[in-house]
Simulated scan of single mutants.
Amino acid sequence: MNQKSAPQVVTPTHYFTVLLSADRSGAHRAREHVRRQLLDWGAPCDHDAVAHVVAELAANAVLHGRVPGRDFRLRLKLYGDGGPLRVEVTDARGDRLPRAGDGAAGDAESGRGLLIVEAYAERWGVEEAPAGGKTVWAEVATDREEL
C-alpha cells in the first residue's frame, strides 16, 4: 500500500505584527519597528536591505493604499534553518495592485520603489486581504553566506 505523507506546514520561528497609521509617521515607525525587531531576534539577514524593503512597501501603502480612517499592517515572519524573512504590508486598497516599474520610465519622479524591492528581495508578490485590501510581501534571504 502506498501512503502519502501529509504536507509539511512551515511555521515561522519568530513573528511580529503591528498596525500603523496610514501616514508618513506610520511609514517611518514601520522602519523603526523592523530595525528593533531584527536586532531583538538576532536575525541573520542584511538589516539595511530589509529596512529598504519595508520603507518602500510602507511608503506605497501610505501613498497608494490609503483609505481615510484605515491603518496599514506590518508583519514580519522569520523562518529558521536558513529560511527567509518575510515582510508583509497590508493596506486597504485591493483595487490598486502594484507592478514593478510602473512609472519608472524616463525621468519620472515616482514608480521606482518596487525596483528597489526587487533588488533586495529574493521574491515578492501581492495577495488579496480581508475587507477588500491587499498584502504586498517580499522575502529576504537570511543565509549569512549570501550577505
Rank of each mutant, 00 (worst) to 15 (best):
V67N: 02
V53Y: 01
R144V: 13
H47L: 12
L147H: 10
S25W: 13
A61T: 06
A58I: 00
S21Q: 14
R29A: 03
G82E: 00
V136C: 08
A141F: 02
D102P: 04
N60E: 07
G101W: 02
D91W: 07
A119W: 14
H47G: 05
L76V: 07
A129C: 04
E109H: 10
A55Y: 11
R86L: 00
G94D: 14
A22N: 15
G69H: 03
E128K: 13
R31W: 06
V89I: 00
R93D: 11
D48A: 13
E32L: 14
T142P: 05
A49Q: 08
A92R: 10
T13C: 03
D40C: 01
A92P: 02
V136M: 08
L39E: 15
V136S: 05
D23N: 15
E88Y: 07
R73W: 01
D91K: 11
L74H: 00
L74F: 02
Y79A: 02
D91P: 09
E56H: 10
P12T: 10
R31S: 09
V140S: 07
L147C: 02
W124I: 01
R99W: 13
A43N: 07
L76S: 12
R96E: 04
G113D: 13
G26W: 02
G106A: 09
R112M: 06
G113M: 05
L114C: 04
N2V: 13
R96V: 15
V67I: 02
L85M: 06
A58R: 03
S25L: 09
I116E: 05
Y15N: 05
A27E: 01
D81F: 03
C45E: 10
A129G: 09
N2T: 11
A121K: 13
D23P: 01
A58P: 06
D81K: 12
R66C: 08
R112D: 11
D48M: 08
N60K: 08
V50Y: 10
H64G: 03
W137Y: 06
G80N: 06
H47R: 15
S5L: 11
V62Q: 03
A51K: 02
